[in-house]
């Protein structure tokens, strides 16, 4: 069983939701990332999503675009990101790490070389934003060889037929994009997301994570009432940006936010937790 599957199984047994904060690797500077990862775990993160910086982040809003630019200004490469994961894994053998990024850096490194290096570094999942299942065959084969879970997005525009196709190749969890838009957008409709996630559960056996547009404790708690995992990206990266000149302050601000999100998720109504526990 993969580290992601184990983590979701354990959370399910405990009746808890996974908190999945996102940071862009190398933001605000490469030396800060591993410390940030440990801080987020200490503050209550269950799974970490680590962004691989890319020059043309088409699916990201301005906050994560700027994080990419800050990291790239320090020359952060995909190999550099893997070395950060390796350093993190040295002191944390348990917390799953999912890389989120775009295809071109992976394609440039080569699928086999990437999968091998990522597995050695201790990467658990890979979400390639601009790689739909239709084009993913060769990368899926390489990731499978490395024992890495391919994570895929589902969107409000995804048909049931496509959902089944995605579910057939996804592992670890599926990531439901809660709105039509880019990361960090501000028009989350929680009731619509709830209905959609309930419907997805009839089509997908994997845990369902929800992200894009979850910006604070209140929206995290609202989404946590029905999702297996809550992904928070731009809100975390905003804290880093506010303290970009002072990495220590950035780490403290991120830990504070992750702590707030954890408390909000754990303050779920008991009924929801019981329903979840009964499922297992």
């Amino acid at each position: 069983m993969s580290r992601l599957a184990q983590r979701f199984a354990a959370l399910r047994r405990a009746g808890r939701r996974a908190l999945v904060p996102y940071v862009t690797a190398g933001d605000p500077e490469p030396a800060a990332t591993v410390g940030l990862m440990h801080d987020m775990v200490a503050a209550g993160a269950d799974i970490l999503e680590l962004g691989v910086p890319f020059s043309d982040p088409m699916a990201d809003g301005p906050v994560i675009q700027r994080a990419s630019e800050r990291a790239l200004a320090h020359g952060v490469s995909l190999r550099g990101v893997l070395s950060m994961v390796r350093d993190f894994r040295h002191d944390d053998p348990d917390t799953p790490v999912v890389l989120m990024g775009y295809l071109n850096p992976v394609e440039t490194m080569g699928y086999e070389a990437f999968a091998r290096a990522a597995a050695e570094a201790g990467v658990d999942g890979v979400l390639t934003v601009d790689l739909p299942p239709e084009e993913a065959g060769p990368l899926l084969a390489a990731l499978d060889g490395g024992g890495i879970d391919p994570v895929f997005l589902l969107a409000p525009t995804t048909s049931d037929e496509r959902t089944r196709q995605v579910a057939a190749v996804a592992r670890g969890f599926v990531y439901y994009v809660s709105l039509k838009g880019v990361t960090g957008a501000g028009h989350l409709d929680v009731d619509a997301v709830r209905r959609r996630v309930e419907h997805l559960r009839t089509l997908v056996d994997l845990p369902v994570g929800v992200g894009f547009g979850i910006r604070d404790a209140a929206s995290a708690a609202a989404v946590g009432a029905f999702a297996d995992a809550v992904v928070v990206g731009s809100a975390v990266v905003s804290r880093i940006e506010q303290h970009a000149g002072d990495p220590a302050a950035a780490r403290a601000a991120v830990a504070e936010l992750v702590g707030e999100l954890r408390a909000a998720l754990d303050g779920l109504p008991a009924a929801a937790a019981v329903r979840q526990a009964a499922d297992t």
Partner: peptide, 12 residues
């Protein structure tokens, strides 16, 4: 060629 976009655009 091909289709390398985020899932939200696959339907459209």
């Amino acid at each position: 060629g091909g289709l390398f976009v985020a899932e939200t655009l696959m339907g459209p």
